[in-house]
Design a protein around this nucleic acid. Sequence first.
DNA 1: CGGTATCCCCCTGGATACTG
DNA 2: CAGTATCCAGGGGGATACCG
Lengths: 117, 117
Amino acid sequence: MKIYYCDIEVAMQILGGKWKTQILYHLTKTPKRTSELKRLVQGITQKMLIQTLRELETDRIITRTIYQQVPPRVEYSVTELGQSLEPALRLLCQWGQNYVEETFAKGEVQILNLDKN
Amino acid sequence: MKIYYCDIEVAMQILGGKWKTQILYHLTKTPKRTSELKRLVQGITQKMLIQTLRELETDRIITRTIYQQVPPRVEYSVTELGQSLEPALRLLCQWGQNYVEETFAKGEVQILNLDKN
DNA sequence: CGGTATCCCCCTGGATACTG
DNA sequence: CAGTATCCAGGGGGATACCG
């Protein structure tokens, strides 16, 4: 039997690692294909993108849809379960923005949000 | 200049890793001394406890107070900035509990919350 | 009791090349 | 375009012993 000694472990187990939340962040607004994600999640490699997507899929946070055509088209979208994470993630985003504002001088740190969807 | 390409990176940078949120979780309710934390954060080693506490301190999420006496007494408590993370963390806790309930059969996974403060 | 100092394993995550 | 397969470095994290 798996035992957690603190209930925040559960969420962090699923959201932890370098890329999980970033991918989720971009998928929350609208489904996206692999290449779009690759572009939006700055710095991620092909391998890590696919690997992370698989893990999120296993945890039922996102789903993978294949459109049979040439060239192949695959789209990822968040499940209902994944959407239920949004309020928490949004709070974390806001907290982060606020943190940057009051911690660093102007121009020292910058947050770019690439997607305009 | 440090650049973030997604604003959730900021929070995850500070909360990421294996122990950060767990420690924060326990400190949110009431200040605690090192030995208490060592007991509450199940499985953490002395080294990782101290190391993680230092990092949280650097990021101004917690503070460290020394009471001059023998034997030495040190207490850690969350700053105002750290407290402002609570709403987000609480949502993540709730989400995790719900996730476990609807994902696993009874007895397959268990969440123990050790502290009764 | 609280903290430091080593030593070291292993796993995450990166680089690259290759398929359908 | 989407994905797989290797190979491999770095560092996060663990075990242990030792100080004030």
